[in-house]
Design a binder for these strands. Structure first.
Lengths: 227, 227
DNA sequence: ACCTGAACACCGTTCAAGT
DNA sequence: ACCTGAACACCGTTCAAGT
């Protein structure tokens, strides 16, 4: 088949959906959620704000597309010969690390339920759940619990990172300031929060996240004993 | 002690932090997240935008305060003579219903981790976890898993409601449109999402949410068998 | 002490006009 | 078909000026 390509040599600099998304990711990584602006973006791409609308419907679609690029990358990592549980843990950790590296992905995911990025995660987890002996009727609920937990932790991590950035603090300093606030709460009303405040700064978020995943997996195992 | 009150009869109409927060809640309930504007708010309160800044530092603080009012209300419900598990379920359901009634609370919670609203939930759950025989060193991780799950589901529900409202759809219609999108995905790449799409619209979000809570509680029970 | 409202420095999005 | 960039209709926030 003869390729009837339109004409001329493709200019590397010409605008395209892909270039716009790549520039958006760079902007979001550099300056956070509030850094992505059609004006900043068009400047980075050496064009006008209106040009971007030729390739992208609106800002919401742009953020979702940027998010999807990161999620697709994280979900493409495969590991063979692992148990379903181990694979689910790996998928979850992959998302944790992706959100850690790109905090804006956490809030983008939270704001676009049912969209492609979330479906990618759902699909990979779902395929593993099928192997765990969960009855068909309970598949959705089970997968949805895991997905919600992942998105919940991701969203909180994203908010922490954004808050710390806004305040000009690094993560340890931010956690310490939260711990301080909690220590000053009314002892009669907030005994638990106060006592747990001291543990806060020392903890490993990644390990905590994984413990939560294991808790849910244990619950699934207890509900649907497999042979 | 003699009360040296400033002067004159308090005008019912005078501005106050409380009146501002109440008006904000009303605005958020009526028009969603994007409905809360300093201009709309000042119009509702028959004042200027600048006046609000005398009582409230900025928009972020205002939203958090509005969120806290709803959360405090939801957390104040007490039930006596219940097992820790039953109490945790009740706390979780209370938050689910609060977010269902005020979707903006879901995203407000997600954006303000470590702030008072989240700590209220953390505290109530934490007190129950103490009664479940979870070792001190694992308290934070356990409570944090439950809280993340609640915030995750809440955030997704909020996003669903907001999306549906933006699109001018009711919830069933919105879920159906999501299910339709999923059914059209590539069968080779998305077998699970496609097969689960049909189950989507029929499901009870509240029941699913509770199943997730039970999954985590089962996991906790399995980890720390109590006598 | 508290309120007013114009002004500032931004936004996302549109659209006539260009090539 | 694709790009330009001025213009529109908004924002949150500030601040001199009032009472």
């Amino acid at each position: 088949m003869v390729k009837k390509s339109p004409s001329g040599p493709r200019r590397e600099e010409s605008l395209s959906r892909e270039r716009i998304i790549d520039a958006s990711i760079a902007l979001l990584d550099e300056a956070g959620e509030s850094g992505l602006t059609f004006r900043a973006l068009s400047q980075k791409l050496a064009t006008g704000p209106g040009a971007i609308y030729w390739h992208v419907a609106n800002k919401s679609e742009l953020v979702t597309a940027a998010c999807d690029t990161i999620v697709a990358r994280a979900m493409s990592a495969q590991l063979a010969d692992a148990t379903p549980e181990a694979t689910i843990r790996a998928i979850a950790l992959g998302m944790f690390d992706a959100i850690d590296a790109h905090p804006w992905v956490g809030s983008a995911l939270a704001h676009a339920p049912g969209q492609l990025p979330a479906v990618r995660i759902l699909e990979r987890i779902g395929q593993q759940i099928r192997m765990l002996g969960v009855p068909r009727d309970d598949e959705w609920t089970t997968v949805s619990a895991l997905l919600s937990y992942i998105l919940g932790v991701g969203g909180q991590n994203a908010a922490n990172a954004q808050f710390a950035q806004t305040e000009g603090l690094n993560r340890p300093a931010f956690l310490e300031s939260v711990a301080n606030t909690w220590s000053e709460l009314d002892p009669a009303e907030y005994p638990f929060a106060r006592s747990v405040a001291t543990q806060l700064s020392g903890h490993d978020d990644r390990a905590d996240f994984l413990t939560g995943i294991d808790l849910i997996l244990k619950g699934i195992g207890k509900s649907y004993a497999q042979q």
